[in-house]
Simulated scan of single mutants.
Amino acid sequence: MVEQARADSSATSTVKAAALQGEQRRAGRWVPGEDARVRSAWTRGRVLAALAVLTAGLLAFHRAVPNSIGRLGSLLEAFLPWLGLVVVVLLGVALARRSATALVALLMPVAVWMYLFGGLLLPGAKPGAHDLLVVQHNVSDENTDPAGTARALADAKPDLIALEELVPPALLVYEKTLASDYPHHTVQGTVGLWSKHPLTDTRLLDIKPQGIVEAWSRGLRTVVHTPHGEIAAYVAHLPSVRVRASGLASSWRDESAGLLGEAVAADRLKTVILLGDLNSTVDDRGLAPLASRMNVAERGFAFSFPAAFPLARIDQVMARSATVAHIRTLPATGSDHLPVAARITLG
């Protein structure tokens, strides 16, 4: 009798559970374990499809994200390529759910991402006869091996080496180590440029935001006399940004970028090269005063910061009346940044 009662109770529970699942399905609710069998491939994954469309919208219309609240627009743009990882995660879930709707929707963010960043994945063209190789590196004022850092940069055999966060006594080490291969150099404040070609008309570049009251010299402009003509070279280190609970603190960086953009726009020479730690990516609207006036890298991601796990390229090489054909990172040094090397095609 006891066994019969248990059997009847189990059967009753099974019937009730089946009835409840049936009601949930009729109400349009998802039932764990049953969804894949009951719904079709076109009715499953509607939430995933919506997330795919949202991701595509953020990629395509990132400029529409306002900066008025915590500079959310700039924060998104600083890590914009990483939205591709969101697409990968959504793809994995869509395959697990066997959702045709989500898979079709994912074509949108994939297409937008490829349009924005796919070209950076392509190999660069072969070096030409009128190319310059330049290296940009924030060497860090806490670098304990300036001699090793200098040798590592010189091993790339660039025409120009731009350095930031130059402080004594490390500056003397850089000057001594690079002297034989780079007989021409200039240092203004904490930034410097070493060159295989003569430099003239060097001057300090004032890009100091008004809110900074202490001594602050982080920009220079000089003329490089290359075999292919005169080039105005700028080296700059824009103010740092901070991610806080209130959002991105970048007002000083943006102000400094505006001053630098005005200086580049007013330069009398046709060809201009800008090298520096700009503390942002080229997608960040905070660098629009520069990126809108100059060419940025056509090939290569070259994420340079932080060196231990690079998430963004904030060390930039830009050019006017020249092409930044390819950019890449060099091996790590004693800095918290990775060096970047860029090939610039003149003409």
Rank of each mutant, 00 (worst) to 15 (best):
281 T>I: 03
270 K>W: 05
247 G>L: 03
227 P>Y: 07
294 M>H: 00
245 A>S: 14
290 L>E: 01
237 H>N: 13
253 R>V: 01
286 G>L: 01
255 E>R: 10
213 V>E: 13
202 T>N: 14
293 R>N: 02
236 A>T: 10
321 S>L: 00
283 D>Q: 11
248 L>Q: 07
203 R>K: 15
216 W>F: 09
284 D>I: 00
312 A>P: 01
279 N>H: 08
316 Q>E: 13
257 A>C: 04
227 P>H: 05
304 S>E: 09
262 E>M: 09
322 A>G: 09
238 L>P: 11
308 A>S: 07
246 S>V: 15
326 H>W: 12
298 E>C: 01
212 I>D: 07
304 S>W: 12
311 L>D: 05
287 L>R: 01
326 H>Y: 11
202 T>C: 15
249 A>N: 15
281 T>K: 03
306 P>E: 00
305 F>D: 02
306 P>L: 00
223 V>I: 14
208 K>F: 03
273 I>A: 05
303 F>H: 10
312 A>Q: 13
300 G>T: 12
269 L>S: 04
238 L>N: 11
251 S>V: 13
214 E>F: 13
243 V>S: 09
326 H>I: 12
327 I>C: 03
295 N>Q: 14
217 S>L: 08
300 G>P: 11
214 E>H: 13
216 W>I: 00
249 A>C: 11
223 V>A: 08
217 S>M: 08
290 L>C: 00
311 L>K: 04
288 A>D: 10
280 S>V: 00
322 A>C: 12
315 D>H: 10
287 L>N: 01
323 T>E: 06
227 P>K: 01
323 T>M: 02
206 D>N: 13
289 P>N: 04
242 R>N: 11
250 S>K: 09
245 A>R: 14
297 A>Y: 08
291 A>H: 04
317 V>R: 04
288 A>H: 06
233 A>K: 04
318 M>Y: 02
309 F>G: 08
239 P>S: 07
290 L>Y: 04
292 S>C: 02
289 P>D: 07
256 S>H: 08
205 L>Y: 10
257 A>R: 02
209 P>M: 08
281 T>Q: 02
233 A>S: 10
204 L>T: 15
315 D>V: 12
219 G>S: 11
273 I>T: 03
280 S>E: 08
318 M>R: 00
259 L>E: 12
208 K>E: 10
222 T>A: 15
227 P>W: 05
280 S>Y: 02
293 R>Q: 09
319 A>D: 02
268 R>E: 14
228 H>G: 09
206 D>E: 11
286 G>N: 01
291 A>F: 00
215 A>I: 01
304 S>F: 11
261 G>D: 05
270 K>A: 15
215 A>V: 04
303 F>I: 02
271 T>W: 06
241 V>W: 08
222 T>Q: 09
222 T>E: 10
298 E>Y: 03
301 F>E: 10
274 L>V: 14
266 A>M: 10
275 L>M: 15
214 E>Y: 14
243 V>M: 03
326 H>Q: 14
293 R>K: 10
325 A>T: 09
234 Y>A: 02
227 P>G: 06
274 L>H: 06
232 A>D: 13
281 T>A: 05
263 A>L: 04
317 V>S: 03
274 L>T: 07
203 R>E: 15
215 A>G: 00
253 R>W: 02
244 R>G: 15
256 S>T: 06
237 H>Q: 14
290 L>I: 05
232 A>T: 15
305 F>I: 01
304 S>K: 04
251 S>I: 09
233 A>E: 12
299 R>M: 04
232 A>I: 09
266 A>C: 11
244 R>M: 15
